[in-house]
């Protein structure tokens, strides 16, 4: 019998290694806050964190950056007045800025087996300096590579024992593409449902992209 549920957060995150690339979804909501706390407690070091926004002074992203566990941040957006902005200014955090749509597509490409793609996004900007560009169909395009993760920490509303997931409203955001882009995808779900309870056409993230699920009730 397939059963991806694990008893607790510590068990779900125990084998995350130093140096791992961590994919962290979330955009105002849809962030797996309990798993982030668990990763801080687990203590893996030298991490690369991939997340849309560098966050603020408080909250899960700020907390894991402030813990000193992250060597590098890959994101689309950093505020000066934030933990991320201050760590970067102090030379304590590497920063790779990726346009948000390119970030999503690099993750999708990693999950989809696409080895590279050209996009007009950012091709005429400083982000393209020193990188390969090419005019395709009359448009200047920038070569982008996939962004695979070692671990994705994913938030769900419902999960069954195969790891099929639903996400609430805009809390879906990066969760499905990060789930497909990581070698190990760990989910925290608000609700546990029986196999078959999620209507097949309503599964947002299929269980084939999910490895471990922890039940984290509200």
């Amino acid at each position: 019998m397939i059963d991806k549920f694990v008893p607790d957060v510590a068990a779900a995150l125990a084998d995350i290694a130093d140096g791992a690339v961590i994919l962290l979804p979330g955009f105002g909501n849809g962030m797996p806050e309990t798993l982030v706390k668990g990763l801080i407690a687990q203590g893996a070091r030298d991490l690369t964190l991939v997340v849309n926004s560098g966050g603020r002074d408080t909250g899960p992203t700020a907390d894991i950056l402030a813990s000193g566990q992250c060597r590098k941040l890959i994101c689309s957006f950093v505020r000066a007045d934030s933990v991320a902005g201050r760590l970067f200014a102090a030379g304590k955090l590497e920063l790779e800025i990726v346009p948000q749509g390119t970030l999503a597509e690099r993750l999708r490409a990693a999950g989809a087996g696409v080895q590279a793609f050209y996009t007009p996004t950012g091709a005429d900007t400083l982000l393209a300096e020193g990188r390969e560009t090419r005019v395709i169909n009359g448009r200047n395009c920038l070569l982008e590579y996939p962004l695979p993760g070692d671990v994705a920490l994913v938030d769900a509303w419902e999960a069954d024992r195969w790891g099929n997931l639903t996400h609430r409203e805009s809390a879906r955001n990066f969760n499905p593409v990060m789930a497909m882009a990581a070698a190990l995808t760990v989910v925290q779900t608000r609700h546990v449902v029986a196999l078959g309870d999620i209507p097949p056409a309503n599964v947002h993230t299929p269980g084939v992209f999910v490895h471990r699920v922890v039940h984290v009730p509200a």
Binding site: S76, R79, A80, G85, P99, T102, T125, L127
Partner: peptide, 18 residues
């Protein structure tokens, strides 16, 4: 400027060209 830590690309580059 490139020197300050404010780097707020977000979705703007994708939206602007798309």
């Amino acid at each position: 400027s490139l020197d300050e830590p404010v780097k707020q690309v977000g979705g703007a580059m994708d939206l602007a060209i798309g």
